[in-house]
Each structure stands twice: as structure tokens, then as C-alpha cells.
Computed example of a mutant assay.
Amino acid sequence: MLFANDTEEGLRSAAALVNTEDGEQLPDVGSLHRFARNWNWTGNLALDDAELGAVRRLRPRLRALWDGDEDYVVETVNSLLREFNALPQLVRHDSWDYHIHAVPREAPLSARMAVEAAMAFVDLVRSQELSRLRTCASPDCGNVLVDLSKNRSRRFCESGCGNRAAAAAYRARLAERAESA
């Protein structure tokens, strides 16, 4: 573990949310509900069209964090924390031990998503680890990822790009061997 569990979970869920923009993977309230359930979002879940719109509008703001330099990331993170009146508190609930929540459970889902991501990025900036933010190395994929590996070797997103690249490299080696035989 490189960071606290809530930081890692915040970074992973932010990347997953950003990646729903490609091919619009949140087309309706039902898909937002599945996303929230899969990422264990608790608290107030209105799950209506207004909330869906707010979550969709958050994605490009978070996506820009993967492309920005440290000053831009700090400015954006501070803006998100101010906008949603973040007030960090230690909480314990469900299967989680103490961790930080910076907005109440009653806050809209989009606010909680924004602040959780911002709080996770705070840890990245403080530990000078923004280089862990990456875009998938597959030439036909634009997904973002957070490299939480110890050796900083993660290159592909979780959409199967790494498997496709390995299979293509294997086929290329087979073809090369066949040509030289």
C-alpha cells in the first residue's frame, strides 16, 4: 500500500468515473446507480436526472487533473474543495476503519465524488506522486489510470488493453518466427 486505503480508493474511483465518459457509459440513471453500487458509494443517492447531469459535468473537470501540471492540479483541487465546502472529518462506517470524509453523507453524490477525488489528489500532490497519473499506453485507448504499483510499471488501463497488447506482441513474434523458418 502506497497511500491510505481511502486515498487509493478515491483515485481509482475518480479514474473509473473519468473513463465512463468514453462511449458514454453513464447513459441513464440506472447506469449511474450501478456505478455507485460497484464503487460502494453510500449516503444520499438521489439517482435522478439532475444527479446524473451533475456527475457527467464532473468528469471533464477530473479528467483535466490527469493532463495538468502540479500548479493546475493544486488550483483545481482547491477549487473543488472550496466549491463543495469541504470540512475534513474522521469517520468509520460499514467495513471501513477510520478514514476522511470532507462532506456529509447527505451531500449530493456529485459533490461527494468531487471532494473524495480532490482529497485523494491532495495526497498525490503532498507526496510528489503526480507522475502516477497516466493515460493508457494502448494507441487506440484514451482511458486514464493511476499507477499504484511499487515499481511504477503499470501502462495499461483496466479495459483489457494490456491483454490485447500482449496478444498482439505474441502474434507478431509467431509471425516473425514463421517468416524466418
Rank of each mutant, 00 (worst) to 15 (best):
F35K: 10
A36N: 04
R37T: 10
N38M: 09
W41A: 02
W41H: 10
T42Y: 01
T42E: 01
A46S: 11
A46R: 11
D49P: 07
L52R: 13
A54D: 12
V55T: 04
R57G: 15
L58T: 11
R59Q: 14
R59N: 05
R63E: 15
A64N: 08
G68H: 12
V73D: 04
V73Y: 07
V74Y: 08
T76P: 05
V77F: 02
N78I: 08
R82G: 03
E83T: 02
E83R: 08
F84T: 00
N85C: 00
N85Y: 02
N85K: 04
P88T: 11
P88C: 06
Q89Y: 03
Q89L: 15
L90K: 09
V91K: 08
H93E: 10
H93Y: 03
S95T: 11
Y98P: 09
Y98I: 05
H99N: 07
I100P: 00
I100V: 15
A102K: 05
A102R: 07
V103I: 04
V103P: 03
P104T: 15
R105F: 03
R105W: 03
E106H: 00
E106T: 01
L109S: 06
S110F: 02
R112C: 00
M113G: 00
A117L: 00
A117H: 03
A117E: 05
F121A: 10
D123G: 05
D123S: 15
L124H: 11
S127C: 10
E129F: 00
E129A: 12
L133T: 01
L133F: 07
T135M: 08
T135V: 15
C136V: 03
A137C: 04
S138E: 10
P139H: 06
D140S: 04
N143W: 15
N143P: 05
N143G: 04
L145V: 06
L145P: 07
L148P: 05
S149Y: 01
S153F: 05
R154T: 11
R155K: 15
F156C: 06
S159C: 13
G162C: 11
G162F: 10
G162Y: 05
A165N: 04
A165E: 10
A166R: 08
A166E: 09
A168W: 02
R171F: 10
R173I: 03
A175M: 06
R177C: 05
R177H: 09
A178G: 11
A181S: 06
A181V: 02
